[in-house]
Design a protein around this nucleic acid. Structure first.
Lengths: 132, 132
DNA sequence: GACTCAATGAGAACGATTGTCAAAACGGCT
DNA sequence: AGCCGTTTTGACAATCGTTCTCATTGAGTC
């Protein structure tokens, strides 16, 4: 049976209040700073579990680190992520979904999955850059 | 100055004859098996260099490993990759490109880049699976 | 052939992630 | 509240891909 523990609550809680994608390491550090220290291994396990259930979305950033975020949209969707601050916008990509399906079929591929993520600088970070 | 060495030639040569995406580790092993042993560090350096110049395309598989492949198309494009054997089809995604640009602008993002890759089982591997 | 500087390679170092396993905590039960 | 069987946890070791270091080697030049 799935038990409710302090650490699981803490991790879920933190993501609940984050609009940004966070890596396991970040979550670990943030919780530590906040005094709710949780073992690193536990953070990884919890995050993966949440992702498996669909509670959170996971994606691998350009640097190879996996990041997690609690999304409003439960259904399948993609993101436009700020590469500086991690803020993300959820995208409805019906058009792209259709395209991917068609393309795959045309080449005889089956069991197709796709990775479609956009990375850039959000309005805020762009402005900060320009000022610098 | 950029020098022409046995190892650089060997790596380039191997990719030249591969229709599949190969990881640095794979390239290293394949060269060793073939008797043209090349240091692992050198393989990494060479692959990165080739990718930087645009000689080869690089992409990160679902497992996080970076894979390289020599592509016919020099211009920007995406792939439909077999997750079993690594075979890849080059895709022209003009429609998707346009979509990504529009979406990004609509949200005030700048300097946008995107990751768009499709993974599945190629016709051959699908068939092999069905038979098993 | 001699010389210079880029390139190589063995191995250490790294950073993210996963595995291990004894100790601690949960939840149901009395 | 106290017990108990199970699930979780966490400190630490282990993996794995990748990068760094630095003494040695080799490419291109004169």
């Amino acid at each position: 049976m799935q038990r409710t523990t302090r650490q699981r609550t803490a991790v879920a809680e933190l993501l609940e209040h984050s609009a940004e994608f966070r890596s396991a390491q970040e979550v670990h550090r943030m919780l530590a700073d906040r005094g709710e220290s949780v073992g690193l291994a536990t953070v990884y396990r919890t995050l993966q579990a949440l992702a498996e259930v669909g509670e959170v979305d996971a994606l691998r950033g350009p640097d190879g680190e996996v990041r997690y975020r609690r999304c409003d949209e439960q259904a399948h969707h993609h993101h436009l992520v700020c590469r500086r601050c991690g803020t993300a916008v959820e995208l409805d990509a019906a058009a792209v979904e259709a395209w991917s399906g068609t393309i795959a079929a045309a080449h005889g591929f089956t069991a197709v999955e796709h990775t479609i993520e956009l990375f850039g600088l959000c309005a805020t970070c762009s402005a900060a850059d320009a000022r610098a």
